[in-house]
Design a protein around this nucleic acid. Structure first.
Length: 112
DNA sequence: GCTTTGACTCTCG
DNA sequence: TCGAGAGCCAAAG
Protein backbone atom coordinates (compact mmCIF):
# COMPACT_ATOMS: atom_id res chain seq x y z
CA UNK A 1 0.00 0.00 0.00
CA UNK A 2 1.58 3.17 -1.12
CA UNK A 3 -0.82 5.68 0.21
CA UNK A 4 2.13 7.53 1.64
CA UNK A 5 3.16 9.51 -1.34
CA UNK A 6 5.19 12.29 0.12
CA UNK A 7 3.32 13.06 3.25
CA UNK A 8 5.11 13.07 6.60
CA UNK A 9 5.71 9.71 8.19
CA UNK A 10 3.36 10.36 11.06
CA UNK A 11 0.58 11.44 8.76
CA UNK A 12 1.03 8.30 6.73
CA UNK A 13 0.81 6.29 9.90
CA UNK A 14 -2.47 7.91 10.77
CA UNK A 15 -3.83 7.23 7.32
CA UNK A 16 -2.90 3.59 7.56
CA UNK A 17 -4.53 3.24 10.94
CA UNK A 18 -7.64 5.02 9.78
CA UNK A 19 -7.78 2.72 6.79
CA UNK A 20 -7.74 -0.16 9.19
CA UNK A 21 -10.99 0.99 10.75
CA UNK A 22 -13.83 -1.14 9.36
CA UNK A 23 -17.16 0.26 8.27
CA UNK A 24 -19.73 0.89 10.93
CA UNK A 25 -16.93 1.66 13.36
CA UNK A 26 -15.39 4.87 14.54
CA UNK A 27 -12.20 5.94 16.23
CA UNK A 28 -10.92 8.89 18.16
CA UNK A 29 -8.02 11.22 17.59
CA UNK A 30 -6.57 10.02 20.83
CA UNK A 31 -6.77 6.39 19.77
CA UNK A 32 -5.14 7.18 16.46
CA UNK A 33 -2.34 9.08 18.12
CA UNK A 34 -1.79 6.31 20.63
CA UNK A 35 -1.86 3.71 17.88
CA UNK A 36 0.66 5.77 15.97
CA UNK A 37 2.87 5.59 19.00
CA UNK A 38 2.54 9.21 20.02
CA UNK A 39 0.32 11.64 21.86
CA UNK A 40 0.11 14.24 19.18
CA UNK A 41 -3.66 14.39 19.07
CA UNK A 42 -3.41 17.68 17.29
CA UNK A 43 -1.05 16.31 14.69
CA UNK A 44 -3.66 13.66 13.92
CA UNK A 45 -6.25 16.32 13.28
CA UNK A 46 -3.87 18.15 11.02
CA UNK A 47 -3.34 14.98 9.06
CA UNK A 48 -7.10 14.79 8.61
CA UNK A 49 -7.41 18.25 7.22
CA UNK A 50 -4.46 17.60 4.96
CA UNK A 51 -5.97 14.24 4.06
CA UNK A 52 -5.15 13.85 0.38
CA UNK A 53 -6.83 10.44 0.35
CA UNK A 54 -10.52 11.08 0.69
CA UNK A 55 -12.02 7.59 0.30
CA UNK A 56 -9.33 5.66 2.09
CA UNK A 57 -9.05 8.22 4.81
CA UNK A 58 -12.54 8.47 6.30
CA UNK A 59 -11.92 11.49 8.46
CA UNK A 60 -15.63 11.58 9.19
CA UNK A 61 -15.16 8.28 10.97
CA UNK A 62 -12.86 9.98 13.41
CA UNK A 63 -14.59 11.53 16.39
CA UNK A 64 -13.63 13.33 19.56
CA UNK A 65 -12.48 11.48 22.64
CA UNK A 66 -15.81 11.91 24.39
CA UNK A 67 -17.73 10.46 21.48
CA UNK A 68 -18.85 13.76 20.02
CA UNK A 69 -18.53 14.39 16.33
CA UNK A 70 -16.13 17.13 17.15
CA UNK A 71 -15.46 18.15 13.62
CA UNK A 72 -13.18 21.07 14.19
CA UNK A 73 -12.68 23.02 17.32
CA UNK A 74 -15.03 25.97 17.41
CA UNK A 75 -16.88 24.93 14.30
CA UNK A 76 -20.46 23.90 14.79
CA UNK A 77 -20.68 20.52 13.17
CA UNK A 78 -24.40 20.98 12.83
CA UNK A 79 -23.84 24.40 11.38
CA UNK A 80 -21.34 23.28 8.79
CA UNK A 81 -23.01 21.51 5.92
CA UNK A 82 -19.79 19.79 5.06
CA UNK A 83 -19.53 18.29 8.50
CA UNK A 84 -23.22 17.52 8.60
CA UNK A 85 -22.82 15.55 5.42
CA UNK A 86 -20.19 13.44 7.10
CA UNK A 87 -22.59 12.79 9.92
CA UNK A 88 -25.10 11.55 7.40
CA UNK A 89 -22.49 9.19 6.03
CA UNK A 90 -21.89 7.87 9.51
CA UNK A 91 -25.59 7.30 9.96
CA UNK A 92 -25.58 5.35 6.73
CA UNK A 93 -22.78 3.28 8.17
CA UNK A 94 -25.14 2.10 10.86
CA UNK A 95 -23.64 4.63 13.22
CA UNK A 96 -26.33 6.45 15.12
CA UNK A 97 -25.86 10.08 15.93
CA UNK A 98 -27.91 11.71 18.63
CA UNK A 99 -27.48 15.35 19.44
CA UNK A 100 -24.06 15.48 17.82
CA UNK A 101 -23.06 12.57 19.98
CA UNK A 102 -22.39 9.05 18.80
CA UNK A 103 -24.82 6.52 20.17
CA UNK A 104 -23.11 3.51 21.73
CA UNK A 105 -19.88 5.27 21.00
CA UNK A 106 -17.82 2.86 23.06
CA UNK A 107 -19.47 -0.08 21.34
CA UNK A 108 -18.65 1.01 17.84
CA UNK A 109 -15.33 2.42 18.85
CA UNK A 110 -12.62 0.55 17.00
CA UNK A 111 -9.74 -0.66 19.13
CA UNK A 112 -6.39 -0.90 17.42
C1' DG B 1 16.92 26.21 13.34
C1' DC B 2 13.43 28.71 15.90
C1' DT B 3 8.57 30.31 16.07
C1' DT B 4 3.60 29.83 15.14
C1' DT B 5 -0.35 27.19 14.58
C1' DG B 6 -3.71 23.35 14.99
C1' DA B 7 -10.27 18.76 12.60
C1' DC B 8 -7.22 17.60 20.36
C1' DT B 9 -7.47 16.27 25.29
C1' DC B 10 -7.54 16.93 30.25
C1' DT B 11 -8.17 19.56 34.48
C1' DC B 12 -9.77 23.31 37.22
C1' DG B 13 -13.34 27.01 38.31
C1' DT C 1 -23.24 21.13 33.75
C1' DC C 2 -20.84 24.50 31.16
C1' DG C 3 -16.73 27.50 30.32
C1' DA C 4 -11.95 28.69 30.25
C1' DG C 5 -7.03 27.57 30.59
C1' DA C 6 -2.87 24.72 30.29
C1' DG C 7 -0.36 20.79 28.11
C1' DC C 8 1.47 17.95 24.37
C1' DC C 9 3.36 16.68 19.72
C1' DA C 10 4.23 17.37 15.06
C1' DA C 11 4.06 19.99 10.66
C1' DA C 12 4.58 24.25 8.23
C1' DG C 13 6.44 29.04 7.80
Amino acid sequence: MKILDHVPKFHAKIYSLLKKVPKGKVTTYKALAEAAGTKAYRAVGQAMKCNPYAPIVPCHRVVAADGSIGGFQGTKNTGSKEIRKKISMLKKERIKIKNNRIVDFEKILFGF
